[in-house]
């Protein structure tokens, strides 16, 4: 399954996206290298999910390029995986859900069985293997979604709020799984609203606000003192921080107009 060419680094050039006449992602420039765990934070509606989907190739940007190191589109597509913010369970058993993407990759059955068993055990849902996936609790579905992408052993894994509805123990378990996946050489790009989690997991932080990438810094220095004033307010959890946002938008709009 591993392609001989690494698909990273991933380069975004001047990427923007609009829908309904609104620019939702604005002028993104950035590069992702293979090693560090990148965590994207920012308020609701900042465009984090859109950003991940554009990188993952689910939505085409209106302007700009998403460029992978590997020129082979198929290999790029099959060597990355994403856990959506709202994962969809197929109407079949838990284990069949994990088998599905492996079958699409034409992995032989015996090998598939091992991968599925591993993933079930790692995600702690082995006892649920024959349950219909749709009747699982939200948290269990979250773990299944993680098991499903874990089994793919991707080079890059996008995670959109992977612990959003998990209890503390499950959150801890999922963080451990993410650590393990990363330890196996998978690049992690994820979003979270849990700043403590960002601190635990991130090697670097990307701060997004209203469709813009406002700051990118190593995790330690970011949490010590973000450079951007909005990021500062966000990290401190200031309740009225969005007022700053209004002023900020006026400023940037002015800049854009001139």
């Amino acid at each position: 399954m591993k392609s001989p060419t690494p698909i990273l680094p991933l380069k975004l050039e001047d990427v923007s996206f609009e829908a309904g006449g609104k620019r939702l992602i604005k002028d993104l420039h950035c590069t992702f290298d293979a090693e560090p765990r990148s965590v994207i934070i920012g308020p609701n509606g900042a465009g984090k999910s859109l950003f991940l989907k554009i990188c993952h190739g689910l939505i085409p940007p209106h302007t700009g390029h998403v460029q992978w190191n590997d020129a082979n589109e198929r290999s790029v597509r099959l060597n990355q995986a994403m856990m959506l913010q709202r994962p969809v369970m197929l109407r079949r058993s838990v284990s069949a859900n994990i088998h599905y993407p492996l079958k699409l990759r034409k992995i032989p059955k015996s090998e598939r069985n091992t991968l599925v068993e591993d993933a079930l055990t790692q995600a702690g849902i082995a006892r649920l293997r024959d349950h219909p996936a749709r009747v699982l609790s939200i948290g269990e579905q979250q773990k299944l979604a993680l098991a499903r992408v874990w089994a793919l052993k991707p080079q890059v894994l996008f995670l959109d709020e992977p612990t959003a509805s998990l209890d503390p123990a499950a959150t801890h378990a999922v963080e451990e799984i993410i650590r393990a996946i990363h330890a196996q050489g998978t690049k992690i790009i994820m979003t979270t609203h849990d700043l403590a989690q960002a601190k635990r997991i991130a090697d670097e932080i990307l701060f997004m606000f209203r469709g813009r990438l406002l700051e990118r810094a190593p995790a330690a220095s970011f949490f010590e003192k973000p450079e951007n004033d909005l990021a500062q307010a966000f990290v401190k959890g200031e309740l009225l921080w969005w007022r700053l946002g209004k002023a900020h938008r006026k400023n940037t709009d002015k800049q854009a107009n001139t």
Binding site: L58, R77, P87, L90, R91, R92, Y100
Partner: peptide, 27 residues
């Protein structure tokens, strides 16, 4: 509509999604 992003993300295309959706819509 419900499955599109998920199936494409898992590596499907509209052709391979066709049998998947027929099966998942079986009821």
């Amino acid at each position: 509509m419900e499955y599109k992003d998920q199936l494409l993300s898992l590596g499907a295309n509209p052709v391979s999604a066709l049998p998947t959706l027929l099966w998942d819509g079986r009821f």
